[in-house]
């Protein structure tokens, strides 16, 4: 599975094992072999990011684009709003803060749902006979082959007022009127959990695949109940999979654009939609750029916090 090559998976793996300093030194100048890849990274990844950073300190053009005049107004506007008539009347930008909050909580909830659903799914696949695991993994990845927009519309077909769930419940007489699910945060959550679930299942599967079934037997043999084998042996050993999966789900969730647009309607915006708005109808590129950088900082801060917390837990257990 090429998944192990993903940077996030590597990141998680490197958390687990500390590379001995000796091996690092032995490589000497060999890192130069990475130069072409480094060049691509610098120009293709860091370059555009740098442009976004520079734009966030410029002045918006009247019809989109930017004027090359330095300004911190965009950054100011990320967090604060000015009264239209009295620019000196400054308040916190409640709309932006609400969108930040919605993005972060929805991304966290999505990650949690994917973890809860992904664990038994990955466990099911990992415990199938070797020859049928490929088929199950294939089934998990099939949605990836379909356009994201189409999958999102499919979800809409299930949860809208005349959709599958409401029709069935109405016919069964469980409810009298359709439950409003479309255009709510709940709809966005369902949509994102559905779309990103494979990103949790695959790294979890990779971790479980390496898990030696005899360790579980050893646990049972040493008087652990099934629950305690799960708690004391399985969960600690598949934790790298959880970390990789959480990172892979959390990052695209917080920046999700299509899903909140289709399932959340115009009202329940997330960060991705807010940023798009500035570059489109809003014609405020610097604000869009500043918002994008804010999101980047948010994600990095969340990752650092997550890794620190997990790492400390690990260290604590080692000492205790």
């Amino acid at each position: 599975m090429a998944l192990r090559d993903l940077p996030a998976a590597d990141l998680a793996a490197s958390l687990e094992e500390e590379a001995p300093a000796a091996t690092r030194e032995r490589h000497g100048w060999k890192w130069l072999l990475c130069a072409p890849a480094l060049a691509v990274l610098v120009f293709a990844a860091s370059g555009p990011l740098l442009i976004v950073l520079v734009y966030s300190f410029l002045t918006p053009g009247s019809f989109g684009g930017v004027r090359w005049e330095f300004s911190t107004e965009a950054w100011f506007r990320v967090f604060f709003a000015r009264d239209i008539f009295d620019p000196e009347d400054v308040r916190p930008n409640a709309a932006h803060l609400a969108i930040f909050w919605r993005s972060v909580t929805l991304a966290l909830q999505t990650t949690l749902i994917c973890a809860v659903l992904g664990f038994p799914t990955a466990w099911f696949i990992a415990t199938r006979p070797a020859h049928s695991r490929g088929l199950w993994l294939f089934l998990i990845t099939i949605p990836f082959w379909t356009n994201l927009l189409i999958r999102t519309f499919a979800i809409q077909e299930v949860i809208r007022n005349q959709g599958l769930i409401n029709t069935v419940l109405l016919r069964l007489g469980v409810i009298d009127a359709p439950i409003q699910m479309m255009y709510t945060d709940f709809a966005i959550l369902i949509g994102m959990a559905y779309v990103f679930l494979p990103l949790m299942v695959l790294p979890l599967y990779a971790a479980m695949d390496k898990l030696d079934i005899r360790l579980l037997e050893a646990g049972y043999d040493l008087y652990a109940s099934r629950w305690r084998v799960l708690r004391h042996i399985v969960l600690p050993l598949v934790k790298p999979g959880f970390i990789a999966g959480s990172i892979l789900v959390f990052i695209p969730s917080i920046g999700a654009y299509v899903t909140p647009r289709v399932l959340g309607g115009g009202r329940n915006m997330m960060l991705g939609n807010l940023i798009e708005l500035q570059f489109g109808q809003g014609r405020n590129w610097p604000l869009g750029a500043a918002l994008a950088m804010t999101m980047l900082v948010l994600v990095v801060a969340a990752l650092v916090f997550y890794i620190r917390t997990v790492g400390r837990e690990e260290a604590g257990r080692r000492d205790g």
Partner: peptide
């Protein structure tokens, strides 16, 4: 166990 199955 044959492979010891120690908890890593």
């Amino acid at each position: 166990f044959q492979n010891y199955a120690l908890f890593p």
